[in-house]
Each structure stands twice: as structure tokens, then as C-alpha cells.
């Protein structure tokens, strides 16, 4: 009964996972993103945090910053949660469900950076937190407009040819994912990468990149 209406973007579906009204699917495109996210989630699970080295200018002295066990565990938890959220968003077959997964990615991203004591980093986490909160507005707004104008949220129906999705809803979805993943704000992201704990920070970048690739697929297919 399930047949992806468009085969030209993501290819034909390989595997379908049914959860009631929400039918997740793996096409070659989403499966590739899924595997990518999976690899980085596993990396986040097995890796240990990097330790930054401070070098005293003009001398031989240097010292490594210690990462406390508590901080490491918390960040690893957040990174794994972020990975799982990304996995969910990659294969989601329902627009509203996708927006919820995107919000989960956003809040775990804040969690990864909020754990530091450095005031600069905390400030960055706060500003991103505000943007992530703002981003839920276009995300849910876009999903709501899609539901009102087409009568469905399932991507299986929306990808069909006869269904016209309003352009503003698509723009809202992209804008929302931009805010949650902060994809275009890489300039300011340098502030975050100044923080220690490389493998977990990496998760922030991977998740936003994948989320963006996925929303582009959704918007083009609709």
C-alpha cells in the first residue's frame, strides 16, 4: 500500500516503519543521512573528550585543562540524545513529527554548550537558546499552515503531485530548521568551538548539517 509518490528526489523507499499515522521511511537519500548520523552517534558514545592545552606565552610552561567527570558525562548524554534526535529527524515521514525532532536537536545542542562555566560560552549558549526558541514558531507555524491547506501532515500524501503546499509554509520550515540547527550562523559558531570537548561539540555541527539536508529534501519533494 505504501509507495513513495516521488522517486526522483530520494529514490524509492527501501524500508517502511509504521507508527500509526506516522509512517517513517528509508529511501536511499534518508538512509544515507541516517547512516551518517549513526556513525557520529557511535563516535560520541565511544570517544573521550579532548583536553585543551594552554601554552604560556614566552615560556616553556603549558598546562592541560581538566575536564571533570560530571561535565563529560553530561555532555556525552546530550551528544547521544542529539544523535538519536538526528536519527529520528532523518527518517521521519510526518511534517509535525519532523519539526518536533528538529526542536529536540535544537535543545540538545544548547545542552552541549550550556554545560561550561566560561561566561563567553554560556552567553553563546543563551543566544542560541533564544534563537532555538524563536525557531519553533516558524516550524510549528509552517506545519500548521500545511495541515490547514492540504488536510494532511503525512509526507506520503504531501509528496504526491496534486498537492500544492503554500510557499510560505515551505519558507517557514526552512527558516525554522535554520534556527534550530543554526546552519547559516557558522560565523558566530566560532564562539562555541572555543569551548573544550571536541567530539561532543562536533555533534552540534553534524546534526545541524544533516537537519538542513533533510529539510531541503522535504521542501523540494513537496
Amino acid at each position: 500500500m505504501f509507495n513513495l509518490p516521488t522517486g526522483n528526489i530520494g529514490g524509492q523507499e527501501l524500508f517502511v516503519l509504521e507508527f500509526g499515522d506516522i509512517v517513517n521511511y528509508f529511501s536511499p537519500y534518508t538512509a544515507a543521512l541516517f547512516v551518517f548520523a549513526l556513525i557520529f552517534t557511535v563516535l560520541a558514545i565511544v570517544s573521550r573528550p579532548e583536553r585543551q592545552v594552554d601554552i604560556a606565552f614566552g615560556g616553556d610552561a603549558y598546562g592541560a585543562k581538566e575536564v571533570s567527570i560530571d561535565l563529560m558525562r553530561f555532555q556525552r548524554f546530550m551528544a547521544i540524545a542529539c544523535g538519536l534526535a538526528t536519527l529520528g529527524a532523518m527518517v521521519s515521514g510526518d511534517v509535525f513529527n519532523f519539526t518536533l525532532f528538529a526542536s529536540l536537536v535544537g535543545i540538545t545542542n544548547i545542552g552541549i554548550v550550556a554545560a561550561y562555566r566560561n561566561r563567553h560560552v554560556l552567553n553563546a549558549a543563551f543566544q542560541y537558546g533564544i534563537v532555538a526558541m524563536l525557531a519553533t514558531v516558524p516550524l510549528f507555524g509552517g506545519a500548521a499552515i500545511i495541515l490547514a491547506s492540504t488536510g494532511t501532515l503525512s509526507m506520503w500524501e504531501l509528496f504526491a503531485d496534486g498537492v500544492a503546499v503554500p510557499i510560505i509554509a515551505k519558507a517557514f520550515l526552512v527558516l525554522g530548521v535554520m534556527g534550530e540547527g543554526m546552519a547559516p550562523f557558522y560565523v558566530a559558531k566560532a564562539e562555541i568551538t572555543r569551548a573544550q570537548g571536541a567530539p561532543f561539540i562536533l555533534m552540534v555541527h553534524v546534526s545541524s548539517l544533516l537537519l538542513f539536508l533533510r529539510v531541503i529534501e522535504i521542501v523540494i519533494s513537496m
Binding site: 507508527f19 534526535a85 509535525f96 525532532f101 529536540l104
Partner: peptide, 9 residues
């Protein structure tokens, strides 16, 4: 039931 995954997320 029908949209249970939403609530889980």
C-alpha cells in the same frame, strides 16, 4: 495511539 511518536518526542 495514532500519533504516539509525537508525544514520545
Amino acid at each position: 495511539n495514532t500519533r504516539g511518536l509525537d508525544t514520545v518526542v
